[in-house]
Nucleic acid binder design. Structure first.
Lengths: 145, 145
DNA sequence: CAAATAAATATTGTATACAATATAATTGTA
DNA sequence: TACAATTATATTGTATACAATATTTATTTG
C-alpha cells in the first residue's frame, strides 16, 4: 500500500458524490428553465406544493439550507409570484410561506418535469440501482444527526 | 397512485444526492481550513499531487469543471504558492500546471486529511455500503458519456 | 496560402451555499 | 419583572458553478 494511496482522487467517495450531484442538477437546468425555476427553487416549490403553507424555518430544515440561502431564495419565489409571505400573528418573528394561485398553476405544469427527466434518462440507472442508491444516500444523511 | 406523487420531494433521487454531497463538503471544511484549502481546491490538489504536472484542460476534464470555475481556481492555488503555471512551448494556448516545492510539502501534511475524515466519521457508512455507493455513483456518472 | 474552424482560456453575469455577524421578538429565570 | 438566553431572519463576505461570450492561437480546408 503506497503512502499516498488515501490521497488519490479515485479512492475518494466524496468525489463521485459531488460530480453526480452537480451533473444531475445540470441536467435539470434546461428542463426547469421552461418553468422559470432553478434547481433550488424547484425543490423549494416541491415542499411548498405539498404543504401549501410552511414556516420559513421549517422549509430551511426540510431542505437542509442555511438562512443565508433561504432568505434570497424565497424572495425570488415571491417576486415570481409563486408564493406570498405572511407574518405569524402569534409570533412576529415567524414568516409563513403560502402558495399563491399562480404557484398552484405552476404545480399542474410541473408534473411534466419528472416525466421529462425520465424520458431524457437524466439519471441513467436501473430502477433497482436507483432504489439502492437512494437508500444508501439517506442512510448517510441520517447517520450523523 | 396520487396525481402529484412524482412531484414529492421524498420521491426524488436527486435530493438526497444533493444533500449528501453538500453535507460531506461541509464536513471537510473545518479540516481543510487548517491546510488553507477549500474542498474544490483540495480535489484539484489531489490530481496535481498525483500528476505533478498537468494541462489546465485535462484538470478541468478530470474534475468535471467548467473553464469559468477552473480559471479562478488555479489562480488561487498559484497565489497560495502550491502551483506554478507555465506555457506549453509547442502550443502557446496551453497552460501547464506544475506542483511547486511548497505544494509538495503540503502533500505530506495532507496525508492527515483522509485520516481525520475517517476518525470524525464524516461519512458514516460501513465499508461495504461505501463501496456499493461509490460503484453506483460511478455507474451513474459514466452512463451518459 | 488565406479563410474558416476548432481549441484553450478568460471574463461576465446569475444563482447558489455557508460561516459569521447583526437584529428584533420571545421565552426562561433569578 | 428585569435580564439573559434563545429563536427567527437578514446581511455581509467569500468561494463556487455554469452558461454565454470574447480572445488568442492552432489547425483544417478550399
Amino acid at each position: 500500500m503506497e503512502k499516498y494511496e488515501a490521497l488519490k482522487l479515485d479512492n475518494q467517495l466524496c468525489f463521485p458524490l459531488y460530480v453526480a450531484s452537480k451533473e444531475v442538477i445540470r441536467r435539470y437546468k434546461p428542463i426547469l428553465e421552461k418553468y422559470d425555476l432553478t434547481y433550488t427553487q424547484y425543490i423549494a416549490m416541491m415542499v411548498i406544493w405539498e404543504e401549501n403553507e410552511i414556516k420559513v424555518t421549517d422549509l430551511g430544515k426540510r431542505l437542509y439550507l442555511d438562512t443565508g440561502t433561504i432568505s434570497p431564495l424565497i424572495r425570488k419565489l415571491k417576486d415570481k409570484g409563486y408564493i406570498e409571505i405572511l407574518r405569524d400573528s402569534t409570533d412576529e418573528r415567524v414568516q409563513v410561506i403560502k402558495l399563491t394561485e399562480t404557484g398552484n398553476k405552476l404545480k399542474e405544469k410541473a408534473i411534466d418535469v419528472p416525466k421529462e427527466m425520465m424520458q431524457q434518462k437524466c439519471i441513467n440507472l436501473s430502477m433497482e440501482d436507483a432504489i439502492v442508491l437512494k437508500k444508501l444516500l439517506e442512510k448517510m444523511i441520517n447517520a450523523n444527526e
